[in-house]
Amino acid sequence: MPLFRFLLLLLPLFELASLILLGQRVGVGATLLWVLGTGLLGLVLIQRQGWSMLQQLQIRMAENRSPFAVLKTGMWWLLAGVLLMIPGLITDTLAIPCLVLALVSRGKPAPGEPGGPTVWKQGNTTIIEGEWRDGEEPRAPRDQRIERD
């Protein structure tokens, strides 16, 4: 934990150094434009995706559906927006994978939804169906299988 705190303290210094190097390379005006542009983009992402996520969550909860997919996608959008709002090149670079993950997970169904993994309960155990292919193994005897209710 102390290492994480130390890295958090170093992040603004590295961000400042990266902005100074960018300013020397492309000029002060372009660097300021970059910082303002990414900050506004982050603000727009948080604002639009936040309201959209809240509306989708309300719809899913009203329909008694799982909010997992909306929360996962919304989390990536929010994290990307926050990283873009922090001035610096390192956090902007870290925002790119978050944007990619938000776009990739955007249309995927959550467990228990049509098209997603099947979910059922066996006693106190929740089972989420998945696929495993390591080789063809014989099916378990009937008395050892977990059957759907």
Rank of each mutant, 00 (worst) to 15 (best):
R25T: 12
V104S: 04
L10F: 15
A80M: 03
I127M: 14
T73E: 14
R48M: 05
L7A: 15
Q24M: 09
I96P: 00
A30C: 10
V35N: 00
I20R: 06
G42L: 05
W77D: 05
L99Q: 01
L10D: 14
K72E: 11
L45F: 07
V100Q: 00
L36V: 14
R106L: 07
K72A: 09
L78Q: 11
V100W: 00
A17D: 06
A140L: 15
P67I: 09
L10N: 08
L41K: 04
A17R: 04
M85N: 06
P67R: 03
A69S: 14
I127E: 05
K121H: 07
G29F: 11
L36H: 08
Q24L: 13
E15C: 15
G81F: 13
E63S: 09
A62C: 06
S105N: 13
T38M: 08
A17F: 09
C98Q: 02
L16V: 07
G107R: 05
A140V: 12
R25Y: 12
G88N: 07
T31A: 12
I59W: 01
Q55W: 02
K121G: 04
I46R: 14
Q55G: 01
P87C: 01
S66K: 06
P117C: 02
V82W: 11
W34P: 05
Q58A: 07
D143I: 04
L10T: 10
E137M: 09
I96T: 00
Q144S: 10
Q56R: 12
R142M: 15
S18Y: 10
G27P: 08
V100F: 03
G42V: 06
G135D: 03
G39E: 04
L13A: 06
W132H: 09
D92L: 02
S18Q: 11
W132Q: 07
L79Q: 15
P114I: 01
P114D: 03
L33D: 13
L83H: 05
K72I: 09
A69M: 13
L84A: 12
S66P: 09
L99M: 02
V100K: 00
G112I: 02
G42Q: 10
I20H: 05
E136M: 07
L41Q: 08
G115Q: 05
V70R: 00
E15Y: 13
T126C: 04
T31Q: 12
D134G: 11
P67E: 09
T93M: 04
G107I: 02
